[in-house]
């Protein structure tokens, strides 16, 4: 039997890859839409398009393949920073992300790694 150690298996794979993103996106999006701390940032009329962006976000936070640079994160969230996006909103999103993964039965140490990836984008997302 071939056993891969968790040190060599990338985080994205350990979480379940693209299927995990699919499994998480509706749950995460629901949490965001009913959380009054952050819901107003997601009030896009086009839910399908918003959902696509949530998938991009989750893929990135799960350590999956993406082409976003720090500069993209800056420009992508600039509109939101202008709306007042700050650390408290950032923390709320990281919290909802953790809660989503917990619902899916993901182990705490993996949730910690996801939170660390999200954390690494804080300065760019908040435009600092």
């Amino acid at each position: 039997m071939h056993i891969m150690s968790s040190e060599t298996t990338p985080l994205f794979e350990q979480l379940g890859g693209q299927a995990a993103v699919e499994a998480a996106v509706d749950n995460f999006y629901r949490k965001v839409l009913v959380d009054e701390r952050v819901a107003h940032f997601f009030d896009d009329v086009d839910m399908e398009r918003q959902r696509g962006k949530q998938k991009a976000f989750l893929t990135m936070a799960f350590g999956g393949p993406h082409n976003y640079t720090g500069k993209d994160m800056r420009t992508g969230h600039a509109r939101l920073v202008a709306m007042g996006l700050n650390d408290s909103h950032f923390d709320a999103i990281v919290e909802l992300l953790g809660a989503t993964l917990k619902d899916m039965g993901v182990a705490d140490n993996l949730i910690g790694q996801v939170a660390a990836i999200a954390e690494s984008t804080r300065a760019d997302v908040l435009g600092r």
């Binding site: 996106v25 509706d26 999006y29 629901r30 839409l33 009913v34 839910m47 399908e48």
Partner: peptide, 8 residues
Amino acid sequence: LFLAGIAM
């Protein structure tokens, strides 16, 4: 409907 549980 989405919030009530229907998958997108």
